[in-house]
Structure formats: C-alpha cells, structure tokens
C-alpha cells in the first residue's frame, strides 16, 4: 500500500468513529452538531499526556476517552430537557465553546530543548509518540481498524440485544417508552456517554496519527459532516455511517475526476440521494428486508 492509500484509509477509519458517535445520537432521536467537541477533547487530552507527560499511548487514550465520556455525561444531563433544534443548537454552542476555549489555551513545557504543548490557534504539534516508538503508518492503521472493529462489534451486539430495541424505542417515541416503564433518562445518558467515548477514541487516534492538531480542526464542519455520514449511509444499522464515510472520503478522494469540483459533485449526490432515500441508503426498512433475506438463504 502506498503512503497515500494508507493515509486515506486511516483517515476514513478515524472519521468513522465520530460518524458512529453522531449516528448513536440520531438513533436516540437527537441531532447533535457537537460531537466534534468530544473528538477534540480526546485528541487534546491524549496528546498532552503522551507528548508532554510521556504517558504510554494506550493509557493516554483511555484517559482521553474517559474525559470525553464525562464531558458527554455533563452536557447530556444539562440538555436532557431539550430536543430537536434546541438540542442541536445547544450541542453546537458547547462544541464552539470548547473550540474557542482551546484557542486560548497556552500550556507548554520544554522537552529536549523544544517547547511542546497546545499553543492556542498556533496548534499543538510534535505529538511524536508513533515516531518515538517506531510505529509505521501501516501498523497504526491496523490499530485504528482493530479498534473500529471492536466498537462495531459492541454496536452490533447491542443492536441485536434487548438494549438495542429499548434504545430504538427511546429514540422513536420517548413518551411511549416512558409509558412502557423504560427509564428514558438512563438510556439517553447511556447512549450519549457511549457516543462521547467513541468520538474521544477517534480523536485520540487522530492526534497521534496527524502528530499536529489545532482547535479549528474540530470546528462545526466536522460535526455536521459526521452527522451527514450517518444520514447518507442510513440509520438502520451501524454500517450506515461507514458507507457515508466511504462515499465521501474514499470514493470522491479516490476518483480524481472531480478534482476541483468535489464538493459540487458530493453535495449534489447527497441532495439527490436524500430525495429518494430520506433516511439514507440502509434505512430501517431495507435493513429489515436484508436481514430477512439473509436468514432465508
């Protein structure tokens, strides 16, 4: 695999995490414009831990995810009463607060005669863990995909279990779910925290893959893209967001014909797709039909 292919494929893998994160919120019936905040938190926390404090990567990632998950818990609890556009804008505000906040974080330490650490809008470079530990890009890509498969396994397992049914019920009609004796608040927060952790995981991978991050990477465009991926791919299954990511980053990046017109092509494609498939390519109905077909054959 050429370096270019490895970097595109790795990118797809990392963006898939935040796309899945936005997808989980769509499943519980909420639109979030703010998942990039957890992605950014994961990136910054784990980056600081490895680059400045010399922690091992796995531990830094665990803590990055934990902080992202805690932030999701706090924001999730504060926004419990909100839904629809109110929820969307509240999450957007939070994410922008994080991004703008990071713009004024200047914490640097001297390591080997060089200043390392977040430097506001100048960004945070020299997150050199993979160089220091001789991890090749290909190996790191493998790590990304092993973790992605892990997350997907959890999601598929949830989808098939009672928990998945309960979460879909909370998403499609919270009042009805409540009337059925389901603890809506608990499941909503559970899904929100899990979504935060996944986004944090993606972010902590991203920081170490890119070795340089800056607050503006985690702007609202990233959030709305990840939201769109789920909707393009379909809300019926966790494969949906991956299709969206593949279509945008993989297909259009790969097909050089659209060079310079990529967004016109992609935007038009998505708009037309949504006219015919308003709940995405793999919506609930199609997923159901495919499952039945698989069972029969």
């Amino acid at each position: 695999m050429s370096d270019y292919v490895v970097s595109v494929v790795s990118n797809m893998g990392m963006i898939a995490f935040i796309a899945l994160s936005a997808y989980i919120l769509l499943v519980i019936g909420e639109i979030s414009f703010g998942q990039q905040a957890y992605f950014g938190i994961g990136a910054y926390i784990s980056g600081v831990l490895t680059a400045m404090w010399g922690w091992p990567l796995w531990l830094a990632m665990v803590l990055g995810c934990a902080v992202a998950g805690s932030a999701a818990l706090i924001i999730g609890s504060l926004t419990l009463r909100l839904s629809g556009i109110y929820f969307a804008i509240a999450t957007l505000s939070f994410a922008e607060m994080i991004r703008l906040g990071l713009l004024s974080v200047h914490v640097q330490v001297e390591i080997d005669g060089e200043l390392v650490g977040p430097e506001g809008a100048e960004g945070f470079g020299d997150i050199r863990w993979i160089f220091e530990n001789d991890v090749t890009p290909f190996e790191f890509m493998t790590v990304i995909y092993v973790l992605l498969v892990g997350v997907l396994t959890i999601l598929f397992w949830v989808e098939r279990s009672r928990l998945g049914t309960v979460i879909r019920m909370v998403g499609s009609d919270p009042l009805l779910a409540q009337a059925q004796g389901i603890d809506v608040v608990f499941y909503r927060l559970l899904a929100t925290v899990f979504a935060g952790i996944i986004a944090g995981l993606g972010g902590s991978l991203y920081a170490h893959f890119a070795t340089y991050i800056e607050p503006n990477v985690f702007n609202v465009m990233l959030g709305v893209h990840s939201l769109a991926y789920g909707l393009i791919g379909g809300l019926g299954t966790a494969v949906g967001p991956l299709i969206g990511v593949g279509l945008d980053i993989g297909f259009l990046e790969g097909v050089r014909v659209f060079q310079g017109y990529r967004m016109i092509a992609f935007g038009g494609l998505v708009a037309v797709l949504l006219i015919f498939m308003p709940r995405g390519i793999l919506d609930e109905e199609r997923v159901h039909r495919i499952k039945r077909w698989l069972e029969r054959s």
């Binding site: 016109i264 992609f266 935007g267 494609l269 708009a271 949504l274």
Partner: peptide
C-alpha cells in the same frame, strides 16, 4: 423528513462554497 432536509441543505452548502 426533517433531518434529511437539514442534511441536504448542508450538502448544498458545500456546493455553494465551492461555486
């Protein structure tokens, strides 16, 4: 299909930027 419309308007946003 409220979410589809919103995402579609975002996709068109990308188009308008590029134009």
């Amino acid at each position: 299909a409220t979410i589809a419309s919103m995402v579609s308007s975002f996709a068109i946003w990308m188009q308008l930027d590029e134009v």
